[in-house]
């Protein structure tokens, strides 16, 4: 969507006049700030940018962006945005959602937006809790989570959002976290530039109802041990001295290894462009939760025609073959007759 005559903007141009009303200390602030900082670099116009959300804490996001925006209803952001993006392929449409909004009440719309490859940039703020309704467990909460609605601990298995998106045929899947502004900006930019549906899981701290849920991975002091940065074309390595890595075991499953034990040549070289989603899926299964070594970055980025473009092509094709519609002729397209 980059054009030469896009006016130069600053972060301030992308901030609306509305007072931001998240709880003090909420991770949403840093995500908002990353997005507002990034927007001037995207080469897009404010009037062509739309943020669409559902319900939840994250869903207030559009009110704070000085663009077009819609705060929809619970779970339906992806569906609303789908209609907008298909009707108006000229727009940049962003979806802001949370783990409850996107994976519970709106799970159906998310997977279908991904499989259709609607030209959307979907940012899912995952805080593993329901914040707006004051602290019930969510579809990403860990088993045994004690909340107001699960006083004896939750018994359901959580979704792995990256695995889910890959299973839903997503063409761009990434993970970032609210403690690293530069990584967020870099990841959001990639997601925005991708044609088709991009899905970004953002680890987001809810300091009121689920404080520290991701600290084992995202806190500065833990990153070297538990954050695995994915770099396209590079062997997957991490650790304070780059001494750990990811390698396949005898069955081909990915596992964390000491580089010294297996040798550098045994390490998995990350390839986000593989046609098969198996590589990205294996990486998504590396961690069972944000308490052990967890990959962040772009898991998968492949090209596939997006739905809106295909629909537009069918319209152009039909008009080329049959001419643009003639209403009088349409009414006479069945068996018709004339009474004198």
């Amino acid at each position: 969507m980059t054009t030469v005559d896009v006016p130069i903007t600053s972060r301030k141009d992308w901030m609306s006049d509305q007072e931001v009303r998240w709880c003090p200390g909420c991770g949403d602030y840093s995500i908002l700030s990353a997005v507002q900082l990034m927007m001037p670099d995207l080469g897009v116009r404010r009037e062509n940018t739309v943020f669409v959300s559902g319900i939840g804490c994250a869903a207030r996001f559009p009110y704070y962006m000085n663009t077009y925006g819609m705060h929809g209803i619970h779970g339906r952001a992806a569906a609303i945005a789908t209609g907008l993006a298909v009707a108006r392929p000229d727009l940049d449409v962003w979806v802001i959602s949370g783990d409850g909004d996107a994976l519970s009440i709106g799970g159906n719309h998310l997977i279908h937006a991904l499989r259709r490859n609607i030209n959307l940039t979907i940012l899912m703020f995952n805080n593993q809790i329901y914040g707006l309704t004051k602290g019930q467990y969510s579809p990403t909460s860990e088993v045994g989570k004690v909340t107001k609605s699960t006083p004896f601990g939750s018994v359901d298995t959580p979704f792995n959002p990256i695995s889910l998106a890959l299973g839903a045929e997503a063409t761009f899947v990434a993970r970032t976290h609210d403690m690293d502004r530069n990584h967020m900006i870099e990841t959001f930019k990639r997601a925005h530039d991708h044609k088709g549906a991009s899905f970004v899981e953002v680890y987001q701290n809810c300091n009121v109802f689920n404080d520290g849920a991701f600290a084992a991975v995202t806190a500065k002091e833990n990153r070297s041990d538990n954050l695995i940065p994915l770099q396209h074309g590079e062997p997957i390595r991490f650790g304070a001295n780059n001494d750990k890595g990811v390698a396949p075991d005898a069955q081909g499953h990915f596992q964390v290894v000491n580089v010294a034990d297996v040798g550098e040549d045994a390490l998995v070289v990350h390839d986000e462009s593989r046609d098969s989603a198996a590589h990205a899926f294996a990486l998504s299964r590396l961690a069972r939760g944000p308490h052990e070594p967890t990959p962040v970055g772009v898991f998968r980025a492949v090209e596939r025609d997006h739905y809106g473009a295909l629909v537009g092509d069918q319209i152009l094709d039909a008009q080329a073959k049959r001419g643009s519609g003639d209403l009088a002729a349409l009414l006479r397209s069945g068996a018709s007759w004339t009474v004198e």
Binding site: V50, V86, L91
Partner: peptide
């Protein structure tokens, strides 16, 4: 657009209405 469900059908329509 043959939507994934009834709710998506109307939600997509609302998105398109916003788009004019």
């Amino acid at each position: 657009m043959q939507a994934e469900d009834e709710i998506a059908g109307i939600s997509a329509a609302i998105g398109a209405a916003f788009g004019g």
